[in-house]
Amino acid sequence: MTVFDGEMREFLRVVLVAFAGGVGWVTVYALGLVGVSAARRGGGRRAVGWVLAVVCFLVAVAGVVVGLRLMLAGRRGLE
């Protein structure tokens, strides 16, 4: 295996991780919006809607925090 292969394999890994992270993040946020929409409509789904919205928005924020913490951990390894 050449260095060239190694870099390209790493780049493909970057794309795959970004795809999963990016699409996953917007999906979770969109589900949160669905929850807010259901909660605002009222009726029997009101409570379920709020729970879905809160859980999804918390997961979205947690995803960002975990990602940034992983980056910071990698930086400390270089210092």
């Binding site: 794309v15 795809f19 699409v23 999906t27 969109a30 919006l33």
Partner: peptide, 30 residues
């Protein structure tokens, strides 16, 4: 190209997931 794929797939998923959300709320939410 990779960015277009990520954003395109994300847009498709978001549209499908929020298809039942009223347009005004959808726009404000995003």
């Amino acid at each position: 190209v990779a960015a277009a794929l990520v954003a395109g797939a994300g847009s498709w998923v978001v549209r499908w997931v929020t298809r039942g959300v009223p347009a005004g709320m959808r726009e404000r939410g995003f």
